[in-house]
């Protein structure tokens, strides 16, 4: 057993030394250690959240939050499941909004930025400016809400949670730059010579090459939709439309408000706080929120890595 390990070790060493662009073993260890510690910094808070969500209430009250609680319990999850309909409705809403939102926003992004990328499109400078301008100057909250609510009727419906995030000028710029750097114009010329129409060129030739870029944008948008709660605050009054993130946010804000205004509210409020979720329940909801979106990363990563190694024009 030992000899094999040593052997593979020396093999690696030899191969490493033979390869160009390779780093020395100590440097590699150092870099890896650095990256591992960075990764730990990212993952430890989440592990902590999971631990707290499984900590018994008594243990939190006695010792506060701890990595090694004195007693474990799945109570918080039981309570979370007892939230019943609201929890599942919100979960479903979150998925619905994220999936629909990502599909449409990516479609819009690709269509718009493809237009900006094509040098033979006459009005591209105008449209580039048109989107860029909104990045610099916004109308502010009040006019935005007025337009959305009164003009577009984005009030108490799913559209209110999807439409406001559909168009993102920043993504247009990223996507256009990506097209520019990875899709050579020759490929568009050659496909048009071969008789491909505009839509076929975009969806069957350009889009597959631009997969990594599209995947990046899709990941960014999916995250934005999944984590969005402010839109629900502005436009949603009916609890059947609220996403999971907002459910958690609401609990958090309720508790903060009560703690701050205890003096103004009187004893009635004291009684209401007793019905409020405990910290372990909040952490359990946090887990509910993080887990599904964590799976989105490996899913999109596949395209990102695959795309980097695939070229389009040889030579």
């Amino acid at each position: 057993m030992d000899t094999i390990i040593v052997k593979t070790g020396t093999n690696v060493k030899r191969r490493r030394a033979a390869r160009l662009n390779s780093v020395s073993l100590p440097a590699s260890i150092l870099i890896n250690l650095g990256l591992v510690s960075f990764a730990l910094c990212c993952i430890i808070p989440f592990i902590f959240v999971v631990i707290i969500s499984f900590t018994a209430k008594a243990s939190i009250e006695a010792n506060g939050y701890s990595f090694f609680p004195s007693a474990w319990s799945a109570d918080a999850y039981n309570v979370a499941f007892q939230l019943g309909r609201q929890l599942w409705t919100s979960y479903l809403n979150s998925f619905l909004i994220t999936i629909l939102g990502t599909v449409f926003s990516v479609l819009i992004c690709v269509l718009y930025s493809y237009g900006l990328y094509r040098t033979d499109f006459r009005y591209r400078t105008f449209f580039a400016f048109f989107s860029f301008f909104t990045m610099m100057f916004g109308g502010g909250l009040v006019p935005t809400v007025m337009v959305c609510k009164q003009l577009l009727n984005l009030n108490n419906n799913y559209a209110a949670l999807i439409v406001p995030l559909l168009v993102s000028p920043f993504n247009f710029i990223v996507m256009r730059t990506f097209f520019k750097s990875s899709v050579p114009e020759e490929i568009i010329e050659s496909s048009s010579i071969d008789g491909s129409g505009e839509y076929r060129t975009l969806f069957q030739i350009v889009a597959p090459i631009a997969k990594p870029g599209i995947a990046t944008i899709a990941l960014m948008n999916a995250l934005a939709y999944w984590n969005e709660w402010y839109l629900s605050l502005l436009y949603i009054n009916d609890s059947k439309y609220i996403p999971l993130q907002y459910l958690l946010m609401m609990m958090q804000r309720n508790i903060e408000f009560i703690v701050k205004n205890a003096g103004m509210l009187g004893t009635e409020a004291t009684r209401m706080t007793q019905n409020m979720p405990t910290s372990s329940l909040r952490m359990a909801l946090c887990v509910f929120i993080v887990v599904p979106i964590a799976f989105a990363y490996p899913f999109f990563q596949r395209y990102i890595v695959a795309g980097l190694t695939v070229g389009s024009v040889k030579g």
Binding site: L141, V142, V145, M146, L233, L234, M250, M251, N254, F257
Partner: peptide
């Protein structure tokens, strides 16, 4: 709710 009332009420009133 305690947490969302303030923003709901002020945006609704301020946006007419």
């Amino acid at each position: 709710t305690w947490g969302d009332f303030d923003s709901k009420a002020t945006t609704a009133l301020d946006t007419g």
